[in-house]
Design a protein around this nucleic acid. Structure first.
Length: 197
DNA sequence: TTAGAGATGATC
DNA sequence: ATCATCTCTAAG
């Protein structure tokens, strides 16, 4: 029983500039074999070559190695001493670019999400932030480097026929201190699951 | 409803 | 010292 009906995005979807991939990921579905799924409603693009806010800007390290790998894999990193965040790797191997998933609209397995985030009161608090959604979906360090295209390792990004919003406008990314000039954050307008300011 | 600060540890 | 964050607490 799949978490949600849909077709996994092909490798070629990810093998493009993250500035193109990020807005197209809106309204796609992040699904887990555990039965949990959420619609992607907020994303940010990061580009290793020209983006001082990207983890990959200063070259390859043990931590960011996944993001320098082939497209369509999941880069998961640990930050602020307690949080995990989840990206999709983009462009060809060696580029070091990706898309940070910042918020989901919960659509399946909501009871499991609540178990993973017991303090939460409203559904819209379950996945409305990059570290919240990894908690709710059960994503942590063990998921760094898994293949989202083959969907053989428990997670995939699905197209279920819902198109991205039209007339999107990029906004400033959240929580960074450099690269502020790049307006590389996109979200589904009006969706209550988008992270708060 | 909003603002401020603590938590907590890997990274470079 | 910084960090692609969250949550609690106190004040308004």
């Amino acid at each position: 029983m799949p978490a949600w009906p849909g077709v996994p995005l092909p490798r070629s979807f990810y093998d493009r500039d993250p500035l193109v991939v990020a807005p197209e990921l809106l309204n796609k579905v992040l699904a887990s074999s555990s039965g949990r799924a959420g619609r992607i409603v907020e994303v940010e693009a990061y580009r290793g070559d020209i983006d001082p806010a990207a983890h990959t800007y200063r070259g390859k390290t043990a931590r960011n190695a996944t993001m320098f790998g082939p497209p369509g894999f999941m880069y998961v990193y640990f930050t602020y001493g307690m949080h995990w965040c989840c990206n999709t790797v983009c462009e060809a191997e060696g580029q070091g670019s990706g898309v940070l998933l910042r918020a989901l609209e919960p659509i399946a397995g909501i009871e499991q999400m609540r178990s993973a985030r017991a303090r939460v009161k409203r559904d819209q608090e379950l996945c409305s932030g990059p570290a919240r959604l990894t908690q709710a979906m059960g994503i942590a360090g063990a998921q760094n480097g898994i293949d989202l295209v083959s969907a053989q390792q428990g997670f995939s990004v699905l197209d279920d026929g819902i198109a991205p919003p039209e007339n999107l406008v990029g906004t400033a990314r959240i929580g960074i201190s450099r690269g502020m000039e790049h307006l590389w954050r996109w979200y589904v307008p009006g969706n209550v699951n988008v992270s708060k300011r």
